[in-house]
Design a protein around this nucleic acid. Structure first.
Lengths: 229, 229
DNA sequence: AATAATTTTTAGATTAGTCTAAAAATTAAA
DNA sequence: TTTAATTTTTAGACTAATCTAAAAATTATT
């Protein structure tokens, strides 16, 4: 079902969601994405994904060869980024202007991200004073789809000897935040990975060049950080 | 295509648009609505309308008997009013907060009216300070679907010597709104009917006690007004 | 290299929404 | 009141998106 069939440039909501999913998988997992990975992310079946990949390839939104996985074309990436931009701007709007809590915004933003109006997006951006990061700490692409701030990763994904900056959390529960407080881990602090224990993926890290602590993999999977360069 | 299939109370965009169209036709034309009238309003074919009417009747959203026309059930009316409420609140938001012109908002509001989140609507209403009328002068139903402001009449229904206040339009197309702008007809302005030409039902009117213009019946049928008392 | 396990694709069916063309019902006119 | 015109409904077909089950291709393991 097309919402706006009069413009040939239009994608359906579903197509937009597939492009967004592929973009996010590339961001996390690497450059070529498998059918199964998409199926899992979209909570659908591999057969449905194959069908959609053919359609997206016909429209030149992805590079796709049977059994060989998927990458985005520049056209496809542009659309994915515009959806992400809209999603994050709307999240910002919901939190800043309508006083939603951080954990209430996602579902609504999933709907709002598909509203199609360039003027709407640009005016919203202006209304919010051109924010660079959304309420979850994720960067907001600009009107040209450019990300000025690097995307954060899970602390659990970094390697031995990496030095990074803490940028956010996945679990926002007060219990977890209190644990971080106690451990001396705060937004913006430096985390140097001294060692990764092979057996349980726990980390030995130095916080702010001051004190050494151990962090379980469960905790590391709930901390966001970027590489310090 | 269902956007949110987890809730059994959900309608598709299309179903919502049919309910809204039927509500508006009842408002203008009378109590029982024909298949053709809906087809014209929805810019689709009568056969498609019949298909949809069956589906809406199955869901108890309309009263429908073959060849006998359609009315809304209270459930159907409730949904129609909630869509209209959302449409008009979003129009208000676009004009007041994002500085859209009144003839630019309709198309975007047509999309936004289908966003499904009770919290979003209530917070938006609050953010806009609970407006009672939208930028086109149409009343905004409250959270319970109640309209507090009296409904306007078509300008074409008034008589010689009536003095009325312009409250809104039927045709929201930017072409028509631009015509009104040019004619000096705006929300809230006074329209005094000097003469009704019998032959074609066109009107000679004075706008704001300032200038006299002629209005065709076609135009008069698209202007809403209330009697000035 | 041959076999087993896994992943991916095809084949065929389903649903919502749409269409055209033809049939049936209603309304208007002679 | 029978015929003509109009409106409405059915019948059958199409597309986008989905599914299950089976076939084909790829990858991993003896």
């Amino acid at each position: 079902m097309y919402i706006c069939s009069k413009f040939s440039t239009m994608q359906s909501f579903t197509e937009e969601n597939y492009l967004k999913a592929i973009y996010k998988l590339i961001e996390q997992e690497g450059d070529v994405i498998t059918t199964n990975a998409i199926a899992e992310k979209m909570r659908t079946k591999a057969a449905s994904v194959t069908d959609m990949l053919k359609r997206l390839a016909d429209k030149k939104l992805i590079h796709y060869k049977k059994y060989q996985g998927v990458t985005l074309t520049s056209k496809g990436e542009k659309i994915a980024l515009s959806i992400i931009r809209k999603h994050r701007l709307w999240e910002m709007f919901l939190v800043e202007k309508l006083h939603f809590k951080w954990d209430e915004v996602h579902e609504v933003a999933e709907q709002l991200e598909h509203i199609n109006s360039d003027k709407l997006v640009e005016q919203l951006d202006k209304f919010l004073s051109y924010p660079k990061i959304d309420p979850h700490g994720d960067p907001i692409p600009d009107a040209k789809g450019k990300l000025t701030i690097p995307k954060s990763n899970l602390l659990s994904k970094f390697n031995k000897h990496d030095v990074c900056i803490m940028t956010g959390v996945v679990d926002h529960s007060s219990g977890f935040l209190q644990y971080l407080d106690k451990a001396g881990i705060a937004l913006g602090c430096e985390i140097k990975i001294k060692d990764v224990v092979e057996f349980d993926r726990s980390l030995r890290v130095v916080i702010n060049k001051e004190h050494t602590i151990f962090i379980s993999n469960d905790v590391a999977k709930n901390i966001l950080a970027i590489l310090k360069k």
